[in-house]
């Protein structure tokens, strides 16, 4: 939870709205784990910000658990592929392995 809060702060300080949320069970290997939820539209920038800040995270996924691919994000969303508006970032060590 604390690492997720830290990541949330880093993103908020850089103008990206973020919230802490529970990771879905299929993304955790040991029960309860926390992630940071952001709008998909900010995924690439969030990734850059977190990396520049030295914030270590496990994965970046969409709300249904699909790993975020920045190749797909370059193109306009197509129905049925990017229907979910939120992306989750799981901080490293927070259980999202």
């Amino acid at each position: 939870m604390t690492l997720a809060m830290k990541g949330k702060r880093i993103l908020e300080h850089n103008g990206i709205a973020a919230s802490v949320s529970r990771l879905p069970p299929k993304l955790t290997s040991a029960g309860c784990a926390w992630g940071i939820s952001i709008d998909c539209a900010h995924a690439r920038r969030a990734k850059e910000i977190l990396e520049v800040s030295g914030f270590s995270y496990g994965k970046m996924v969409t709300a249904d658990g699909t790993p975020v691919s920045f190749e797909k994000a370059k193109h306009a969303p197509t129905p049925g592929v990017t229907g979910t508006p939120r992306t989750s970032v799981s901080p490293k060590g927070g259980g999202g392995r």
């Binding site: 604390t2 690492l3 040991a30 029960g31 309860c32 926390w34 060590g93 259980g95």
Partner: peptide, 16 residues
């Protein structure tokens, strides 16, 4: 700890 509930021990990270 609110984290990694199925682990038998406390988490390996600060502060939890």
């Amino acid at each position: 700890s609110g984290l990694r509930s199925t682990d038998p021990g406390m988490p390996d990270l600060f502060p939890e």
